[in-house]
Design a protein around this nucleic acid. Structure first.
Lengths: 194, 194
DNA sequence: GTCTATACCTTGATAGAC
DNA sequence: GTCTATCAAGGTATAGAC
């Protein structure tokens, strides 16, 4: 059953998602979102009372997308260590966006982390989702829990760092090279018995 | 000879520097800076015509500070590889600020990199200054230029990544641990002959 | 559910008296 | 060099007709 209201709402969330990524949260106004979505401002408030509400829905949508992506990887019949490699290699598909706009998650956390802690905490859940999944793969490959947590955090650090530097230098090849180094590091760590 | 005008100007730059770090550039208004500095807004415009101008001076001041810091390290009579270790270890003194506000340089580049490219390019000079110094140390320790550039960039990646994650998780120990891992990595790389 | 009009506030920026 | 008063633009948010 087609539900116009839900479709409009989803349309707003998708529009806001892109604008938050490309312009930042605070630099994106209601007017920006309404205009990009092709919806008059008045109607807009029928769906969302505040910009915070939109961000919360944007985060929920991103979480769903990443969960789907991770579930798809799980269905590929790979070994846990290869799932990790697959996930990280797939990031290279986003290299253009990373070099131009930074990480959709990392950049918004950096922005909100200064003065909007409640919203930042919610955004942080996306990072935790990914790190927990990585840690789970390491544990399935035989690592102890504490080791798996350290390794997965280290991967997060290097991914975020590679994106920050690629964005700063507007150089996507720098992201690719750092990710390839990271993949080599994983090969070494994965073969370490424990 | 005491020059009131210059002192006021410096006072404004220092105030703005802190506010840009703690609140972000776009989230810091003229009123914020004027109030924090204890200067009426009207007088304020006597010193700076636009917020962009203030940022440019803030960046220049940060560059001078870092140049001083690097020069001090050079005077310590250390081997090049030890200068690198010294610089990176010293970052641990800032761990509280990193966990609470992120990297003063990285976070502003991430913010400005989305829609204010001219200002971002100027901020980026701070990163380049540090990376060039690191690369120079590697070259002095016998590495080839291209190798030195890759190694220094990798250090920048891991520092920025460690700060982003420490900031996201509001966990300074996470920064310290990643920096310690980085120092171990440097020990290994420095001993590699070339 | 859709849209227009508008109220109210904060922002960057200026004019001009002292 | 210092300060008050003020402006125009743009922001969030609402009221209410359709």
């Amino acid at each position: 059953m087609y539900n116009k209201g839900t479709a409009t709402r989803t349309h707003i969330i998708n529009t806001a998602n892109n604008l938050f990524y490309h312009q930042g949260f605070n630099q994106t106004s209601f007017t920006d979102i309404a205009q990009s979505a092709g919806i008059p401002k008045g109607n807009f408030y029928h769906y969302f009372k505040t910009k915070e509400e939109i961000l919360e829905d944007v985060i929920q949508q991103r979480i769903k997308n990443i969960e789907n992506q991770l579930n798809n990887i799980e269905e590929l019949n790979l070994q846990p260590a290869d799932r990790i490699r697959f996930f990280i290699s797939a990031l290279k598909n986003n290299k253009n966006g990373f070099a131009q706009y930074g990480c959709p998650v990392g950049s918004i956390i950096t922005e909100l982390g200064k003065t909007q802690l409640a919203l930042k905490t919610k955004s942080k859940m996306i990072l935790e989702l990914i790190q927990n999944w990585l840690s789970s793969q390491f544990q399935q490959s035989g690592k102890h829990k504490t080791t798996a947590n350290t390794l997965s955090r280290h991967i997060m650090v290097r991914i975020q760092g590679a994106i920050v530097i690629a964005h700063a230098y507007e150089d996507k090849s720098c992201f690719t090279e750092e990710i390839n180094q990271l993949l080599e590091w994983i090969d070494k760590e994965a073969s370490n018995a424990e």
